[in-house]
Each structure stands twice: as C-alpha cells, then as structure tokens.
Design a protein around this nucleic acid. Structure first.
Lengths: 216, 216
DNA sequence: GTCTATATTTGGATAGAC
DNA sequence: GTCTATCCAAATATAGAC
C-alpha cells in the first residue's frame, strides 16, 4: 500500500461524504463521487468493492472521529445545565460538518440497501452509546432520574436530531424552528432541577402515578 | 376521463406509496411501481408526467386523507393527558399505514429532487398545522404554556417521529426503545399538569429564569 | 495502483399502433 | 387510455493496457 493509495482512498472517503451530504444518497453515484474526489471512477471498485461499501467505510471512519472529538467534553458533563451547554456546541459543529444529514441519508438508503443499513446501525450506535453514558450520569443526579431511561432517551434524541436534519433539506426555516424548541424544553428540564425539595417530591409522586397508569 | 382511468391513476398512487414504503425512494422506479400496480409502465408518464410527480400526487392525497381521519379526534383534545391518549392511537395507526416512513423517504429524496422537496414540505406542513392547533389549545391550559411555543413543538414532534421511522428501517428494536421514551416524557409533562398551585408557580418562576438566561 | 475502454443493466421517457 | 417496442442516458462493474 503506497502513500499514493492512502491518499486516494482518503480522498474517496471524503468525497463520498461530501456528495451524500449535498446531493443525497440518490445522487451519490460512483461517477459523481469520483469526480468530486478528482479520481478515476474505476478506483472506487478497486479499493472498496462497491459504492455502498465506500459510503460505509467513509461513514464508519467519520463517525469514530466525530465521537472521539467530543468525548472529553462529554465526560466533563454531570448536570442537565452542563449538558445543555455541550449539546448546543456539538449541534453547532455537527450541523456545520453536516454529519447528521449524512446519517439521515444513509438511514433512508438503508431501506433498500443492506450495506447502508449496517452503516446506519453502526453510526447511530456510536452516537447513542456516547450520549447514553452522559445521560445515565446526569439523570442519576436529577429528580427525573427514576422516571426516564437513559438509553431510551439517547436513542430518542439521536432520532430527533436526524429527523430535523432531514427536514432541513426541504424546509430550513421550519427545521430551525423545531430545533429552537429543544432549547425551550431544556429550559423546562433545567427548571425542574432547580425546584425546591417540596416541589420536586410532589413532581416525582405525580409522575410515578402517571407512569403506573401508562405502563401498567 | 373514463372510470377505467380513475382506477388506473388510483392504482398507481397506491402502488407508488407501497413501493416507497417498502423499498425506499431509491427503489421506487417507474418499472417497480408499475409492476406493483399491475399497470403498464408507460402510463405513469402519460398520467403524471414523471415518477417524482406521481409520488408527489400520491403523497399529497394520502396526507390529506390521513390528517382528515384524525381531525375529529384532535378537536376533542384539550389537555395534555387527552393528547397523550390520542397521540398513542395516531402513532399506532400511522405506523401500521407506514405513512411516516414514506414521509421520511420523501424528505431524503428531497435533497436531490425539487419535486419531492415540494411534496415533503406539503406533507409536513399539513401535519404540523394540525398538531399546532391542538398544542396551542393544550398549552394554553397548561402551566408550560408560557414557556413553549406551540408551532415549534409541533415541528419538533413531527421531525422526531420522522427520525424514529427512518431509524426503524435500519434498527427496529432501538427505534422502539426511542419511541417508548416519548411516553415517559409525556408522563413527566402530565405530572407537571397535575402539580399543586404552589409547585406550579415555583416551576414557572424557575423556568422563566432559565429561559431568560438562554434566550437573553 | 491507475488509466481507458467497454460490457451490462437499469431506468426514464416517447412513438405509434390499437 | 392503454399497449408494445424502443431509444437514450446514466450507472455499476470489469477487462486489460500501462
């Protein structure tokens, strides 16, 4: 494996993500990706076997890098208000990088392509694992800890972000409106954390009551 | 326009949605749709002009029908707990019908296809308009009314549902886990509605304080 | 490893008979 | 309105020279 090869494979991975981000999986043909990478089209098949496998490789690598990027910031979080700050930061950077858009596109393609399905599962698992760990810690210290399952919330948050990014492609203003509401909901949660002991006890009791009604 | 025509157009619309649901936009070719409809492939172009326009027509019609289906149930809702009951019902039926999956697929295709983008905007707007009206009413009667914007929440909920359905295609168990968490969050919101006046006042104050900090 | 050339398949779209 | 036949473009993938 010469250094030229490394370069070519890397160029292809980068280009693959760029094309998926800007034109969707539907527009991510071998020719389009090769053109973006300024690399010969046949090399996609030589190095990766198929277009789907190239996209998978690119996604896997990008997800690992992205998650690693935030690991330190995440480990520092131990309250809902902390999490809010970090989350806003992560969202800003990820929107810039367009990685959620890519993930949404891969998930959409997963419906008809098993290789993309594997890539999608891997990407989402990487994010939710990370978010799950933080949420476990944060929820343990919150009055809501007994009511909400960390893993479930991690999956929900990831799915919601993905949905919003998808939305963004068709209707940017509305998508921004949706995202703004997450911050308002966070306000409510933070407010709950800030309640006095009497109110918190009342809330926990009321929620446990409702919970019994809906799960029972 | 003979009755045979009506039948053919309707068959094509139905088949288009079925194929998009089961194989994604990527798999929704003219040939695949025509085969599913047991109709000649050329008729797609004769009746609708292009595959995208067929999908758009099918989506538009389906969305109207679906929204109309729930209109009565929605108008009856005037509390968060009511909404919870109706929402669970709607979700169950919509998941069966697969209409959110179709919407997610259309949104994904919107990235590279202006006609699908128009269809996506239309579909999401129809749902959010409906949900918005309910939320406005419900939030007005809730202690959270002053904190959360109805329209924004309607968009967020729609986007989250879409994300979960997308997720469902690649990893069904995890997607179900995510959806279950929505119910737990609803428990918390319902619990807030059930708080005594003192706790509610404390919460409103705390939230307003946080809100000032984050929006200010 | 990289290039050109090309085989092969699939899909959108139309012409023209019925 | 519907059907058959077909054209054309685009895409995946491979063969073989360099």
């Amino acid at each position: 494996m010469t250094s030229r090869t490394v370069d070519t494979k890397a160029r292809l991975r980068t280009a693959a993500l760029a094309v998926v981000r800007e034109r969707g999986v539907g527009g991510a043909s071998a020719r389009a990706i090769a053109a973006a990478a300024e690399v010969n089209q046949a090399l996609i098949f030589y190095h990766f076997g198929s277009v789907s496998e190239l996209i998978e490789a690119a996604s896997d690598e990008a997800v690992e890098a992205r998650v690693r990027l935030y690991r330190d910031a995440f480990t520092g979080v131990d309250s809902l208000s902390d999490l809010l700050v970090v989350a806003r930061q992560v969202h800003e950077q990820e929107r810039q990088a367009g990685s959620m858009t890519v993930m949404a596109q891969i998930m959409a393609g997963a419906q008809s392509d098993p290789v993309l399905a594997r890539a999608g599962r891997h990407a989402l698992a990487a994010w939710t694992d990370e978010v799950d760990q933080v949420l476990r810690r944060v929820l343990a210290a919150s009055p809501l800890g007994s009511l909400i399952d960390g893993a479930g919330l991690a999956h929900l948050v990831s799915a919601a972000f993905m949905g919003i990014e998808l939305y963004h492609g068709a209707d940017p203003e509305s998508a921004d409106l949706a995202f703004g509401t997450i911050e308002r909901l966070n306000d409510v949660l933070s407010a709950i954390e800030g309640l006095g002991p009497a109110s918190q006890r009342a809330l926990r009791l009321a929620a446990a009551h409702v919970n019994k009604r809906t799960t029972g």
